[in-house]
Design a protein around this nucleic acid. Structure first.
Lengths: 192, 192
DNA sequence: TCGGATGTCTAGCGATGCTAGAATCGGGGG
DNA sequence: CCCCCGATTCTAGCATCGCTAGACATCCGA
């Protein structure tokens, strides 16, 4: 039954190829350029093949987003570990988050802007998502004071997301981005 | 030359009809349901008429957004005036902002999510937009401490937007929304 | 070697935003 | 008063979108 195994391996490989190609294409030309036709052409298969791997375009975006959550969580863990704790850890966290969004704009959109159908804060929430929230939680717990840590994380995360989203859509000017982030960290982790 | 005046009046009326209809349709069924065909049918004209008033769909969304900015600014001014100042004013501001987003989800999307081409923080920024920022500025200046008031407003606004955006897209649970907003106000205007 | 299942592709459906060119309407000059 | 001409509006269509039914090919196991 080695034939079946080989086929499954090839299928998994093609599955990953679709996700990777979608991500590349999105990062190159934005998600609006990621059409099923273009995607099919790039992977050198016809469109229906996409639908044998994913329920639809939305699920492909979701798969890309999932990669992003794993990478962001890892990056945040690393940044915190390399910092000296306390306010510095929060600052490192925030800069990593915003830096990640700047370096991977399309990936960030898939994670936090587009409709992916991924369940957040739910029994079925995928592991990489929980990991990301956990990374935030472990760092921010120390500075949350008497506030509920979970709530504290949610608000801090939302604030960072707001800054990223408004800046990326041109509703906040690009200049002053660093100062805004500093001010935010001040408010949540105290002055240096 | 009264004929010309009448025609201009009718044209302006139809212009507003398009904006109002787009807004209604968006609030009823979401922006993805606002297609040029449906919009044309509702105003009882053919599609090309839309393009004699607006450069494209994006500009229609922008016109709707502009209405929203004027309404939001007015609502915030009112809420602040009715409050007792200090932290209460900030709290009233925040609740008005979030309440506005909840009551007018499609309008909020047009203002802060969708691509409208409206220039923010720019020489050409339309008056209603400046007014909204001004309403925030006048209230938050008192609690900004030694931080730059403009920067302070931007960060507070971004935080509120983050909460709204993540909640509306299902990335934050609806329950706990009030507590999160309270926590945010605590961080920017101090504990009560 | 051949039958059948598995996999893939061609072709097409109903939408979308937008536009060129035909048709119609109405105001102003003879 | 009538009729012409310019402005206005509509019909019809283009390219593209996500998605799918059914024809076709390919390859494994007997």
């Amino acid at each position: 039954m080695s034939v079946r195994e080989r086929k499954e391996r090839e299928r998994a490989h093609r599955h990953q190829l679709i996700v990777t190609t979608a991500r590349e294409l999105a990062e190159e030309q934005g998600w609006e350029a990621v059409t099923t036709r273009r995607l099919a052409e790039r992977i050198e298969y016809s469109q229906p093949v996409l639908y044998s791997h994913f329920r639809g375009k939305r699920e492909i975006v979701g798969a890309v987003a999932l990669e992003g959550f794993a990478e962001l969580a890892a990056a945040m863990r690393r940044a915190v570990a390399d910092s000296s704790g306390g306010r510095a850890a929060v600052s490192a966290l925030a800069e990593t988050y915003v830096g990640f969004a700047e370096r991977n704009p399309a990936l960030y959109d898939a994670m936090f802007l587009l409709d992916t159908g991924l369940p957040f804060a739910d029994a079925a929430t995928p592991a990489p998502l929980r990991e990301g929230f956990g990374a935030l939680l472990d760092t921010l717990r120390d500075v949350a004071g008497d506030a509920d840590p979970g709530l504290f994380v949610e608000v801090f995360w939302a604030a960072m997301h707001g800054l990223v989203a408004l800046t990326r859509s041109g509703r906040l000017p690009a200049e002053g981005s660093a100062q805004r982030l500093d001010l935010l960290v001040d408010r949540f982790a105290g002055r240096p």
